[in-house]
Design a protein around this nucleic acid. Structure first.
Length: 657
RNA sequence: GGGCCCGUAGCCUAGCCAGGAUGGGGCGUCGGCCUCCUAAGCCGAUGGUCCUGGGUUCAAAUCCCAGCGGGCCCGCCA
């Protein structure tokens, strides 16, 4: 990574160089001072205040127990020897014992600044993207929304998280393949195929996935009402459970009213057709069975509409600049008998029992027998619910189909990351245990469920079945429209085409940023305010900072000067350069620990520091030409870093706004 | 009933995995800053029982235990 006693001109990780120099120095000093002591692990932290230097060690607090001396005395003992060691490291300017016993390392700022700006300049589009020493083949499966309604704002969190993860891992040097699992086999597909067929398989008006979503919600709602009415009739009025059923029915009737208002023509057409049908439920199960069997009629029908929906998804992805390398059809795994073979093999294990004609996978027994609770970090006394493997009519179930699909993915990759909502935590666990039961324990360890929390609305829950959702498309549309207004206000002189281009980048960026900025484990409550935030802590804010940097460089027709970085004295300059220098460390942490939000957090913090710098220190009209040159170097490094950071979230950095 | 996740100012949020010095931001509110590189900006003020109670530790927002509150899951749905 770096060479001791040599001055590196370019580093993929400038702050990391400093960190290495500090820890090497510290280790040497400790070994010299306490040759007989086994040293605890060293870690260097960023102190709370620049007064205490740029890195700090609290090792003396631990040593004080072993050596029976006060931490401060130990720290002083170390610092006293420091002067000798330090001279061989160009980035360390001072080592001091401070506070109650901290050893603080002060950076040679001019050297670090020079290394940082030159590295950013030299590595340019690659600055910050520190390559891993152990590159892997990684599959990131994300979105995988059922092709039955448009991608709504809830699912879009999955899309943005998955896409960011893929970008980050790729930048880290892994070979990443983005997969989309098309769940076209389930009951939901049969429901909509049924409705679509009743309508005479029309060409959709408008965006195809939006049309499919309407047909699905209406069909599903009408079937639900029909089923509930029949159940209530059969149960008679005497039973208490009819109270719940009636409540449920009322709920669906309300949904029907909503849907009728939104799609009057479609609603009434479907209502009429479904009423003519003696037994819609039977038709739906028939369709489902025939599709799994691979009958031509059913195949043609279901593939036709699901393809329609996917075309809509592809349009959305194109606009959001999300790419997919492999579209995997679930039905293929049924038709090529992978699913049935897997099921047969699983049945031969001692963990599958037949209960009332259906096969159950006893995940608890498997986990105990194979000693898997430690492997998957579960409590020993935690009982894992069993998994039903198939329907009584012989058709398959989702998690069962996911087993051969997972094996297929794991064959092609060292690590498979499934971006799936946290509500599927249990089934993802059952899936992994099933893989182990099939003898794929090592593979199963490479399967990561990257879970994230739901997006909710202040009032009601998002529901595809009820047609209650705000689509990703309309959120982007609204955001872009708002950005266009804003650009027109600020830069009216620009040609309309340019304005539209900027608005697109800003509008789409704002939405993506809002979805990725929060810790995936936390719930996001959707509000237009949050998504359309164009101020501090938003993509537009970061983009704006980038545009300002570009503007300065453009004004002076920037050519990289050979600047004297020792002229930089202002704390604002220090903070800014240090932030740029730390980007590679932030990136590595985000990549290796799968923390997409860390990139968003960092981008905003860097923009903050740049804006503070921008507001109080003139660059072009700095006090001297030499200082101006040095500041220009910083501006260029910031421009590169902001652009590279945004790129990881899939957000464009326009040169003007 | 059991399991998983979350709980940090009026609201949103970082830090928690790998414990360290006065807990960072943002929104809001109040007050300032455009003859000077884009005010989508900057500066200042305001606001905190880090859910509660124990424990471990020289040191706890961070680790452990027990509660409380909210969400999700435990389906022949996905």
């Amino acid at each position: 990574m770096y060479e001791v006693k040599n001055v590196t001109r370019v580093s993929s990780n400038p702050f990391g160089e400093f960190r290495n120099q500090c820890s090497t120095t510290l280790r040497t000093l400790l070994q010299e001072a306490f040759p007989d002591t086994t040293l605890p692990a060293l870690s260097l932290n960023i102190p709370p205040n620049p007064e205490f230097g740029e890195l700090s060690s609290s090792i003396c607090f631990e040593l004080s127990k072993l050596l029976k001396k006060s931490p401060l005395d130990l720290a002083k003992q170390i610092a006293a020897k420091a002067e000798l060691e330090r001279s061989s490291f160009n980035l360390v300017s001072a080592i001091k014992a401070e506070g109650q016993g901290y050893v603080n390392f002060y950076v040679n700022f001019a050297e670090l600044a020079r290394l940082t700006v030159e590295s950013a300049k030299a590595l340019n589009t690659d600055y910050g993207y520190v390559k891993t020493e152990r590159p892997q083949r990684i599959i990131v499966e994300h979105t995988s929304a059922n092709p039955i309604h448009p991608i709504h704002i809830g699912t879009s969190r999955n899309t943005v998280l998955g896409d960011t993860l893929a970008r980050v891992l790729e930048a880290r040097g892994h070979t990443v393949s983005r997969h989309y699992y098309i769940d076209d086999v389930g009951r939901q597909s049969a429901v909509i195929a049924y409705g679509y067929n009743l309508l005479g398989r029309p060409k959709p008006d408008g965006k195809p996935d939006h049309y499919v979503g309407a047909v699905y919600a209406i069909t599903s709602c009408l079937l639900e009402i029909r089923k509930l009415k029949e159940t209530i009739e059969k149960a008679g009025s005497a039973f208490e459970e009819t109270i719940n059923l009636k409540k449920n029915l009322d709920d669906w009737v309300a949904v029907a009213a909503e849907l009728e208002q939104k799609f009057p023509k479609l609603f009434n057409a479907l209502l009429e057709k479904i009423n003519e049908d003696k037994n819609p439920e039977l038709k739906v199960s028939q369709l489902l069975r025939e599709y799994e069997e691979g009958r031509n009629e059913a195949k043609k029908l279901i593939r036709e509409f699901s393809q329609l929906c996917l075309e809509g998804f592809k349009q959305t992805f194109a606009r959001a600049e999300v790419s997919v390398d492999s579209w995997d059809r679930e039905s293929n795994f049924v038709w090529n008998s992978d699913v049935s073979r897997t099921l047969e093999t699983l049945k031969k294990t001692p963990f599958v029992v037949n209960e009332n004609g259906v096969y159950e996978f006893d995940a608890e027994k498997a986990a105990q027998t194979l000693d898997l609770k430690k492997v998957f970090d579960l409590k020993e006394d935690q009982e894992i619910p069993s998994l039903t493997l198939g329907r009584a009519d012989g058709t398959t179930l989702y998690t069962t189909r996911d087993i051969p699909y997972s094996i297929w993915k794991l064959k092609q990759a060292d690590t498979v990351i499934n971006v799936i909502g946290m509500e599927q935590t249990l089934s993802q666990l059952q899936l992994k245990i099933a893989l182990c039961a099939l003898g794929h324990t090592e593979k199963a360890k490479n399967l990561i469920h990257f879970s994230y929390n739901l997006v909710s609305f202040p009032g009601q829950r998002i529901s595809g079945r009820r047609g209650r959702y705000v689509t990703f498309d309309e959120v982007i549309e609204e955001s872009v429209a708002r950005a266009y207004e804003e650009v027109s206000k600020r830069s009216p002189e620009l040609p309309d085409e340019v304005k539209r281009g900027i608005a697109e980048a800003v509008g789409v960026g704002a939405v993506k940023y809002a979805l990725v900025e929060t810790d995936p484990q936390k719930r996001v409550v959707f509000t237009w305010d949050k998504v359309l935030n164009f101020e501090t802590n938003s993509a537009p804010y970061i983009q704006y900072s980038h545009a300002r940097a570009c503007n300065i460089l453009k004004k002076v027709d920037y050519k990289p000067p050979n600047a004297d970085m020792s002229l930089l004295k202002d704390p604002l300059e220090r903070d800014l350069v240090l932030a740029v220098a730390r980007f590679p460390e932030i990136f590595v942490d985000a990549a290796d620990n799968l923390k997409p939000n860390a990139i968003a957090e960092y981008s905003n913090a860097l923009a903050d520091k740049f804006n503070a710098f921008y507001a109080s220190l003139p660059v072009i009209k700095a006090e001297t030409p030499e200082l101006s040159s040095a500041r220009l170097m910083i501006v260029e490094a910031v421009r590169i870093t902001l652009r590279n950071a945004l790129k990881l979230i899939g957000i464009e950095a326009p040169e003007r706004m």
